[in-house]
Design a protein around this nucleic acid. Structure first.
Lengths: 211, 211
DNA sequence: ACGCATTTCAAACATTTAATTGAATCAGAT
DNA sequence: ATCTGATTCAATTAAATGTTTGAAATGCGT
């Protein structure tokens, strides 16, 4: 064994830089040159640590999924006896922050969307690790709100209505930015957005529930 | 002047092939070689007719916007005295078909989303020609449903809630396909989807309207 | 049939980029 | 201090890709 310090550091630097660049430019447009520059590492470092560019990408996604789980644990900061309404609100809030929050590793949301809209081989893993747990969690909340009589199809549609409202702000961000340039996505704005989507969705779900 | 027939034909073939390939792979990943192959044209044809790859891309978007306006005219097949509810339903139906319909130029939706999520220089034009008219149209409907007291902010949020629900099925398509592989998007399915989103949204909007 | 402009074509060019290589450097164990 | 394995580095390689080029072909008016 050798030093556990410097090498691990550059590996982490690479993961961080790669996350940014992949998020900004997409897998293909990202160059290992730029990644290595930002990581202040040599061009050969990517191949040395990750085999090739695709290996790096896979590890970035894994690394991200890990961080994502840590930062947004399955059980949000909610009491166990929270109502379905409260849990819906918490879910929407959490999801919005997750994809819009531009704090530290701000590329998480971008990368998630990137892989969603133009998937690579890695999408299947990401689905199992991120999307499916998320969807099932929301399905449960929606199912409770809809009541026992709800078909899986109805649950699915409502879940997607909720997710769609949230994801739009990430997916359509370039358009939104240009059409309403004054729009900000500070925590307060996200908070208000969450309130709107929660109210809107609760009404929608109740409408669907009442046949 | 020379023949107006054969040259125009290959130019059109290029536009068609380019639309497909750009939609499938994105601007950067699309190669002029593949485009020319599909168009059964020589590799130099792109530069000959469009200057360079970017010029071709711009013309593809223009061409698409043109077709889009033709196929989905601003005044959908609605009576002039249609209620706001009817117009909302028509808008959602039309929008869904526009982005999900996999008939002839099925790459339109893909391309639209592509430019939306990873814009190029051409996005500004596309906004002026497509997105803004569309949004303003929906804003008017939503505004009417919300009533006179509605702030522009509320209108905006509701409009985005509607657009988000629709766009999700295009943006998240790869994920949806993998998570529910049996899902189909035939006209009947789209029709049913439109009904769901309309009902969901009407309830949402009325909720927001009631303070 | 001829001349002319337009279009097509195959080949080559220049650039970018992922990946490799082999030497140099470094850090810790002996 | 020296050896050893891991890491860094600059230079090189090989492949892909947008673009150019100049010749050949094509179609149209005269």
């Amino acid at each position: 064994m050798t030093s556990e310090d410097n090498p691990v550091e550059t590996k982490l630097r690479l993961l961080g830089a790669a996350g940014e660049v992949f998020a900004e430019r997409g897998f293909r447009d990202a160059t290992v040159r730029e990644i290595c520059e930002r990581a202040e590492a040599n061009i050969a470092a990517v191949n040395y640590y990750f085999g090739d560019k695709e290996g790096l990408y896979r590890e970035v996604l894994n690394h991200w999924a890990e961080l994502s789980r840590q930062k947004y644990p399955p059980d949000l900061g909610l009491r166990g006896d929270a109502t379905a309404e409260e849990r819906l609100n918490a879910f929407i809030r959490s999801f919005l922050f997750r994809i819009l929050d531009k704090s530290q590793p701000g590329w998480h949301g971008k990368l998630m969307v990137r892989e969603m809209t133009q998937p690579t081989e890695a999408l299947n893993d990401l689905i199992d690790e991120v999307y499916r747990p998320l969807t099932e969690r929301l399905d449960a909340i929606v199912g409770e709100l809809l009541g026992l009589a709800a078909s899986t199809e109805k649950i699915r549609q409502c879940t997607r209505s909720v997710l769609g409202q949230c994801a739009y702000y990430r997916h359509a961000r370039p358009v939104i930015q240009r059409m309403t340039p004054d729009q900000r996505f500070e925590p307060d704005d996200i908070e208000q957005l969450a309130k709107h989507i929660t109210a809107f969705s609760l009404a929608g779900i109740r409408q669907i529930a009442g046949h």
